[in-house]
Amino acid sequence: MTAATVNHGDQGLVRPQRRPALELRRVVKEYPGDPPVRALNDVSLRIDHGELVAIVGASGSGKSTLLNVMGTLDRPTRGVLEIDGVDTAGRSDNAVSGIRARKIGFVFQQFYLLPGMSAVENVANGLLYQGVAPAERRARAIDALSRVGLGHRLEHTPNHLSGGERQRVAVARALVHQPAFVLADEPTGNLDSRSTDAVMQLIDDLHNDGTTIVVITHDTDIAAALPRRVTVHDGTIVADSGHPDDAPET
């Protein structure tokens, strides 16, 4: 939202400067075993600020592994991962945790809302590990919940919310700290079709507001609706529709 909107006239074209939100270069991920399982094989991928990207592929193709590596939940065996221009290689667990706390938002298939905590409290947890003061956490959580259309459900606990509402709370939690990008692993995997539509509409709206989002899905219909699709097969990227701005005019 900041530098991305700066105009830049190098090639004689007036278009926003593109800045990578995250970049993988020649990433390999092997799980130990005999023989080791190579879940990612030489993956290079750049996702710019403001993009909405679908990562598609069959079961076992390596989508979740890719998301875990992109989200620093797991470290690549080889290769480079840069987040918002910062190389993550060789950083301590603490430093990488700090990157997650500030730069990355996660949405999971299972929501992972904490029981016994209200929607606001759950969302406010997105700011907890940045050391934000409680009052500010709450204020920002209320804003985030309003953004996902749950301004009227602030004090409800997860067991008093529908599946779709729960996932929207989780999306609010992933947004509340204004991360560089949001990673969503099968966000609609546990939802009925109506809730799926609502959550995908929300993701689209957030994208239009400038949020960078990566959605993992094996649902090709969902993927088809998103501006960019990256297809993974056997640990490698076999197709990438590329940045929409780079697509040939139609």
């Binding site: 603490n94 700090g98 500030r102 907890l128 590990y129 409680p134």
Partner: peptide, 29 residues
């Protein structure tokens, strides 16, 4: 280009340590 600047670490306030520690017992009375 990748910069090597030290990104700020995670931080949990002391009052939040207590709050977080109490959240489990609070949810399961």
């Amino acid at each position: 280009m990748a910069s090597k600047d030290q990104s700020p670490a995670s931080r949990l306030r002391l009052s939040d340590v207590v709050r977080v520690g109490a959240s489990g017992p609070r949810a399961r009375k």
